[in-house]
Write a protein that binds this DNA or RNA. Structure first.
Lengths: 275, 275
DNA sequence: CCAATGTGTTCCACTATTTGGAACGCTGTT
DNA sequence: AACAGCGTTCCAAATAGTGGAACACATTGG
């Protein structure tokens, strides 16, 4: 059958850390440039890019020219580069037609109806979790963002849940690439601590984020094992500590796990029996 | 100064209609594949792609393999291809840091507060308008989508507004590429009609969508001329006919134009004086 | 005022990468 | 069993990307 590994993006994200080549030849180099532009907070100019990319000026210049021509990158303010509109368009299309998201959506809503708190659906990609969907109460400050946003695996509920679905080998490989950053006093800051917690998560079937990413925010999450192991994902209910107690969070445990299981079932229904 | 034309995406979108090569070499071919996958409604299999791409099987196969490796495309259900997660991540980053959007946002909110109806911010890209931001009342069915969504230029308020900011030459070039599709009885279905309406829009400074895209929906829009002519954009207030009369819509005209002008001013403030 | 430095851009011979015809190995069909 | 359709791999040939060097414009400073 189909080789063409996706490998849950383990290898895929080899250059998430914007290093040079990949096994992808020209395309890889082009994407490295895109990633460099995406990674920068302050707008970059040509020389800035040249500094982070380590390629001859001439080469880089042409690569950028191509990226601009393709609408993946844009030249603005007549000196700085930003990501292009084509990405927005493609992402919208991707989001709108993602089978996984479509199947999961009703379950997210149900979970939100039950808890009244924000529900997230996240997928593992390299050493990050990417949020693919979200249902939240009223958004005082709306953030269409969040969807598509990336968070670290090691300090988020979905992140740890997703990790727990991987084989030990894959987990170890990933661990090497994680750079642990302490975000709060509760953040797990090394591979050992994380490994130990993963064991718990595998046994219990739930993971918690106990204010490990943002102070004052905690969550319950459950892993979603995809049928074909091509996807490592998780679902979570997030809430501020001041409103939702640790005990309350644990009471939602069953609901969250239930939702995750329901999503898996629906996936098997609609993808399993030979489509 | 900087060549590296962006050209408002006129040339950029040369292969919006998923034709073969571009002047972009390898990258262009890769993006053609991505675009083909994005364009399809029903999931495509390898042979489907091979049919629409016109490249030798072997070549296409390797291209796809690279795209998968890079996370731009994903192989799912073990036979069909979809767009990859990396696009979501990049788009989110792009959206979150877009200067244009950030500057425009407060004005969109003000306009929404005034009218109570949905406000859109759209940018011209090739023969389409891409919605870059949106403020809406209560979303019964939420659609984070819409943002990033593409609509035709010739039958939307923002589309026509954006067109009106272009030089005649560019407009003509674009017209050639538009394939006019009648969406409602009021849709403009040929270049002549559109050209005539553009003259009105240039004179009046507003454009209307009089149920030209969707029956029962109309809108007022105003063009945003970007300082450096690198961007052709527009802003609009959209409402259902049953609730908002044509007259009411025209009463908002000044507000919409005002908001568009305010956005331009803010842009000049923050980009003009040598940053 | 004219060198000197720091940008961004173009040229073109060299070479690494992409190319695609052909052959292979599946799975399902007649 | 032979056949047909799909997906996958190989490798010589050719194309497309590379990058050192030189150019054109700013801006700086001696």
């Amino acid at each position: 059958m189909a080789r063409l590994d996706a490998d849950i993006g383990l290898a895929a994200s080899a250059n998430d850390d914007l290093r040079l080549p990949a096994g992808t030849g020209t395309l890889g180099k082009a994407m490295a440039v895109v990633e460099a532009i995406a990674a920068a907070e302050r707008p970059l100019r040509f020389r800035d890019l040249a500094a982070r990319i380590d390629q001859p000026k001439a080469t880089l210049h042409r690569q950028i020219a191509n990226l601009i021509e393709e609408g993946l990158v844009e030249l603005r303010g007549d000196q700085t580069y930003g990501l292009g509109l084509r990405l927005l368009k493609l992402a919208a299309r991707s989001w709108g037609t993602s089978q996984f998201r479509l199947i999961a959506e009703p379950h997210l809503r149900r979970l939100h109806a039950l808890t009244g708190e924000t529900v997230h659906l996240g997928v593992l990609r390299g050493v990050e979790v990417i949020y693919v969907d979200k249902v939240e109460s009223q958004q005082a400050v709306r953030m269409h963002s969040q969807i598509g946003n990336a968070s670290p695996v090691y300090c988020t509920g979905v992140g740890k849940a997703a990790l727990s679905t991987l084989a030990d080998g894959d987990v170890h490989a990933l661990m090497q690439k994680i750079s642990f950053v302490r975000h709060t006093p509760h953040t797990l800051t090394d591979a050992d601590a994380l490994t130990r917690e993963l064991a718990d998560i595998r046994r219990e079937g739930v993971s918690y984020d106990r204010e490990e990413h943002e102070p004052g925010i905690h969550c319950v999450a459950a892993p979603i094992h995809s049928v074909d192991r091509r996807l490592a994902a998780g679902i979570s209910v997030t809430a501020p500590v001041y409103r939702i107690s640790r005990a309350q969070l644990e009471d939602w445990r069953e609901a969250v796990v239930g939702a995750a299981d329901a999503i898996m079932e629906d996936m098997e229904m609609r993808m399993g029996p030979r489509s």
